[in-house]
Nucleic acid binder design. Structure first.
Length: 119
DNA sequence: ATATTGACTCCCA
DNA sequence: ATGGGAGCCAATA
């Protein structure tokens, strides 16, 4: 089965929307959940596309790198993401070089495809 | 159709 | 603990 771009976006959207409040997950895991473990990069790209104007807002902020680091992708962007996460009681520590890190061991949310199957 | 890029991840020095 | 390099797949130019 090959997923079209729209399908891919839809899947990403569905999974990301399921992330509980105050939890975070990684691009790679989202990719796995939709059955494409190697599309980790493209997950982020899909989010960027989705985050714009979908009816329920996509909590793209809850999706970070597997290492718990938030990609800088722009000086203001990461800052905004940190603020959004802290608003959800997610503890974000700032690295020495200004990297934003989230403790995945505490806030990480990594369900299996079965867990999200029903929704 | 080919080349470059990207909100990533893994492995080795 | 850090840092650099290779691998990946799809979108974009």
């Amino acid at each position: 089965m090959s997923l079209d771009a729209a399908e891919f976006h839809a899947e990403v959207y569905r999974v990301v929307r399921l992330i509980p409040h105050g939890r975070v997950t990684s691009y790679g895991h989202v990719a796995k959940l939709i059955g494409m473990p190697h599309h980790s990069r493209h997950v982020g790209q899909a989010l960027k596309c989705l985050g714009a104007d979908v009816d329920p807002p996509v909590p793209w902020q809850r999706v970070i790198a597997s290492s718990g680091t938030i990609s800088p992708r722009g000086e203001g962007g990461a800052q905004r993401q940190r603020d959004a996460l802290e608003a959800e009681d997610v503890e974000v520590r700032e690295g020495r070089t200004g990297d934003l890190l989230v403790n995945l061991d505490t806030y990480g949310w990594f369900p299996t495809r079965e867990d999200i199957a029903d929704e």
